[in-house]
């Protein structure tokens, strides 16, 4: 047992284990981190064609084997003395811009809601909406991820703030609330409104 009680042996054991585990982790990191990074980026990029062109056209393009060029920009906006950053994706077909996708997030009913908002090339009309992440109440608030509800946003003007209504949308800036989840619907619309109010001038500037 004298061998077991020697502090030197213990110290070497710990050192050896640290070396083994350290190199194992380094190997895992080197092998897997490119795949993890790619997963993170693709999660957003995969949605860009559908948001800019509409689902059907995007499918058509994918079948023909054509692909959009997507360029990522980070835009800084000054707002009441604070600098805000937005990740914006520019969609191009053979060098010509066909639309934008804005990544934005804000407080929902339960937790943060992450959205991708598609805009046309002049940033005048909304061309699509996708919910990247949400934890709203299942069965009520989480209906914001349904295609039918999201479809309402297609073609809405980006210049004016949108509003929620429970009576059935009649004006162009109105959106029907999800039944029983007015707050979730409202949150989504306010996140979009804030992002567009912040970003539209900057996107318009990029026109030239």
């Amino acid at each position: 047992m004298g061998f077991k009680n020697s502090n030197i042996v213990q110290a070497w054991l710990v050192l050896l284990l640290c070396l083994c585990f350290g190199s194992a982790l380094a190997a895992v990191h080197v092998v897997l981190s490119p795949a993890i990074e790619a997963n993170k980026i693709n999660e957003t990029r995969e949605q860009v064609p559908g948001l800019v062109l509409g689902e059907e056209k995007a499918l058509e393009m994918a079948q023909k084997g054509e692909a959009l060029d997507v360029v990522q920009h980070q835009m800084a906006v000054e707002k009441s003395g604070r600098k805000l950053f937005y990740n914006v994706y520019e969609a191009l077909i053979s060098g010509k811009r066909i639309g934008w996708v804005v990544k934005t997030s804000g407080a929902g009913y339960a937790d943060k809601i992450e959205l991708l908002v598609g805009l046309d090339a002049d940033a005048d009309k909304i061309s699509g909406l996708y919910v990247l992440g949400q934890k709203e109440t299942p069965g009520l608030g989480n209906k914001i991820i349904e295609t039918e509800w999201r479809g309402q946003f297609i073609g809405k003007p980006a210049s004016d703030a949108l509003t929620v209504t429970k009576m059935g949308a009649s004006k162009p800036i109105e959106i029907d609330a999800v039944t029983g989840a007015t707050i979730s619907s409202n949150s989504v619309i306010q996140i979009i409104n804030t992002a567009l109010a912040d970003l539209r001038p900057a996107l318009k500037d990029k026109q030239g």
Partner: peptide, 10 residues
């Protein structure tokens, strides 16, 4: 950590 990275990658 290994399990976590593996899940995140695949």
């Amino acid at each position: 950590t290994i399990a976590d990275k593996f899940l995140a990658a695949y």
